[in-house]
Design a binder for these strands. Sequence first.
DNA 1: CATATATTTAACCCATAGGTAAAAAAATAA
DNA 2: TTATTTTTTTACCTATGGGTTAAATATATG
Lengths: 198, 198
Amino acid sequence: MASFRAQKIAKKKQEILRSAAAVLAEKGYQGTTMEEIAAKLLMTKGSMYYYFKNKDDLLYQCHQMIMEISLERMEEVVNSNLSPVEKLRNAIKGHILLATSEKSMFMVMDKPNQNFTDEQLKEVLEVRKNYSHYFDRILIEGIDSKVFNPVDVRMVRMIILGALNWIQQWYNQEGPQSAEEISDAFADYLLKMVVKEH
Amino acid sequence: MASFRAQKIAKKKQEILRSAAAVLAEKGYQGTTMEEIAAKLLMTKGSMYYYFKNKDDLLYQCHQMIMEISLERMEEVVNSNLSPVEKLRNAIKGHILLATSEKSMFMVMDKPNQNFTDEQLKEVLEVRKNYSHYFDRILIEGIDSKVFNPVDVRMVRMIILGALNWIQQWYNQEGPQSAEEISDAFADYLLKMVVKEH
DNA sequence: CATATATTTAACCCATAGGTAAAAAAATAA
DNA sequence: TTATTTTTTTACCTATGGGTTAAATATATG
């Protein structure tokens, strides 16, 4: 069991990560200073180094935090007993809903090979690979059960992930369409690429 | 007529921009130093300031350079007398072929609101708006002439541009598929979203 | 209350990188 | 060849920001 202290520290870390993500998303990794992040939380730079080894550790943990959540949700969908069509729809919708509600966190994940150390990058790419692999599994399942056209899985996955990840670039809360509406529309259109007509 | 000097300077500027784009793409704006860019061209930092006002001027001109080319090509497609289906296919393929052959240049365009000054950003967003507007025009033309389904133009445009712009994140020359193959596949799949069955 | 431990702060160090200016070197003109 | 202009370089200034450390403060424990 995690000690009381450990829990308290973990909570504080999360607090920092969330706040840091907002700044990182707005200014980019190199454009963000540790002092800025600290100031936003009414603490000093030195205090941050009590919780995080250094700046890229902060970025790394931001990345892993959001990927963990993403993976969890994706696993739920993939392991459900929905049809491939509904699995794909849910995967798309789930991604969009999470990416829009946690926009900052998702933006932090952009351009991974620019700011991570080699070891971090290895981990990061690994976990991302797992995530995209889930899309492949759904696609293959649909193809095998003849409800999807025999598409090029890699290409289609790239199209889907591209469309989804691009949303961060243009989505804003005050836009004409809600995240819910966007996710429905995206799912509808993207499914048309793969679902067989009948 | 442009003087001999002016031409010579323009040529040198382009040379710098191309080389700068490569570094900027790899390390990001804030991660790139003027010295690095200069060194790659076997010149010194000071010399760069003879051609460019400052660092963000360099980035800005990189952006405008590639957008100019993109817009030109897009205009050719839109103003051709192809069918909407073929126009869309060509627009998609053209974008991908350019984005892959000029990968660095395109990567520089990412996250515009992070590194530009206010005035620059205004121009940048304007020219990008023009570009995406061309996609809208093609889509509307197809819908009006009943060859496309009555799709939500904004949503479909976002999906297409997302899929296309994401390519920079994963494409590499040595990959299993050539840019030509990728562009064909993308065009095929994306067209399925909008073209009516018959 | 006293002592030990955990957390925060303030003050500092230092390398880096954007930008400048004046001198040196190249190129061009006369 | 000399004078003039253009281009490049060298040396410098300065602010910034990541990271460290020792002291101060807060928190818990006996």
